Simulated scan of single mutants.
Amino acid sequence: MTITITAFERSPDGGMGLARDTRVRWALEETGQPYEVRPVSFAAMKEPAHLAIHPFGQIPTYEDGDLVLFESGAIIFHIASHYPGLLPNDANARARAITWIFAALNTVEPAILELVTAKFLEGDKPWTKERLPLIADRIRERLRLLSARLGDANWLDGEFSAGDLTMASVLLRLRPSGLLNEFPRLADYVARSEARPAYKRAFADQLAFNTGAPPAR
C-alpha cells in the first residue's frame, strides 16, 4: 500500500514550507518512498474521522497499511528507522543522529513556537510588546549554542541525517523573524539543507498542493 500523509487543505503560510507536513514529505523524499497526500480542512481536523488518527486534531499524520502515526518527529523517526538514507549504520552515530531529532523538537523549537504564538495569536495582548524581546533573547541563546556546536562543519554530526532534517525544518520557522540571519553559520546550514534535491522536491510539491499547480514530480 502507498504511504498516505495528511496536510492542511490550505496551509496558513500559503505553501512556504513552514507547516510540519513539509518535514515529513522531505523525509520520504530523502528515502525515496512514494506517498500520497490527503488534504484536511481546519473544520475536518476537529471531526471524529481525523481525531481517530490524530487525537489532538492536527497535521501531519502518516498511514501505511495498518500503521497510523501522528507527530512529525515520531513520523520522521519511523521513516528514518525503516528506510535507508537518514540514519548512519554505526550504532553510536545512529544514536547521536536520533538525539538531534529530539534536540530540535524539545530544545530549539519550543522557544521558536513561543515567538510565533506571541506575534500571531497574542499580538493584541497588552503584555506582548514587553514579552517579545524576552522570547527573542531566549531564542538567540539557543542559536548561539547551536552555532558553536556546528562550528565550520556542514552537518551536526558527520553526514546529513534525520537530525539535520529535523533541525533545519525547525530553524526555517525563524526566517520571517530575521533572527536566523544573526547567526551566519546557521543561515548557511539551512541554505545547504534547502539545496538538497529531496528538499526541493518536497517544497515544490507542497507549494503546488497549496496553490493548485501541478506537482513537481
Rank of each mutant, 00 (worst) to 15 (best):
I3K: 01
I3L: 09
A7Y: 01
P12A: 15
P12M: 06
G14R: 06
M16P: 00
G17Y: 02
G17I: 00
G17A: 07
D21H: 14
D21C: 07
V24S: 03
R25L: 03
L28S: 08
E29L: 03
R38H: 13
R38D: 06
R38S: 09
P39C: 13
P39E: 13
F42Q: 13
M45W: 07
A49D: 15
A49V: 10
H50L: 01
L51N: 00
L51A: 04
A52P: 04
G57V: 04
Q58F: 12
T61F: 08
Y62M: 02
D64P: 00
G65A: 09
G65M: 09
D66T: 09
E71S: 11
E71K: 13
S72I: 11
I75T: 06
I76Y: 00
H82K: 07
Y83N: 04
G85L: 01
L87D: 05
A91I: 13
A93M: 01
A95F: 12
L105R: 09
N106Q: 14
V108L: 02
E114F: 08
L115S: 05
L115Q: 07
K119D: 08
E122D: 15
E130T: 07
R131D: 02
L134C: 02
A136I: 04
A136K: 10
R138F: 08
L143W: 09
L143D: 02
S147A: 15
S147P: 08
L150F: 08
G151H: 05
A153N: 12
A153C: 06
A153E: 15
E159M: 08
S161G: 05
A162E: 02
D164S: 10
D164I: 02
L165V: 14
A168T: 13
V170L: 15
R173N: 15
R175P: 01
G178A: 14
L180Y: 03
R192Q: 06
R192N: 08
S193G: 15
S193C: 13
E194K: 12
P197K: 05
P197H: 09
R201W: 03
L207C: 03
N210S: 05
T211A: 09
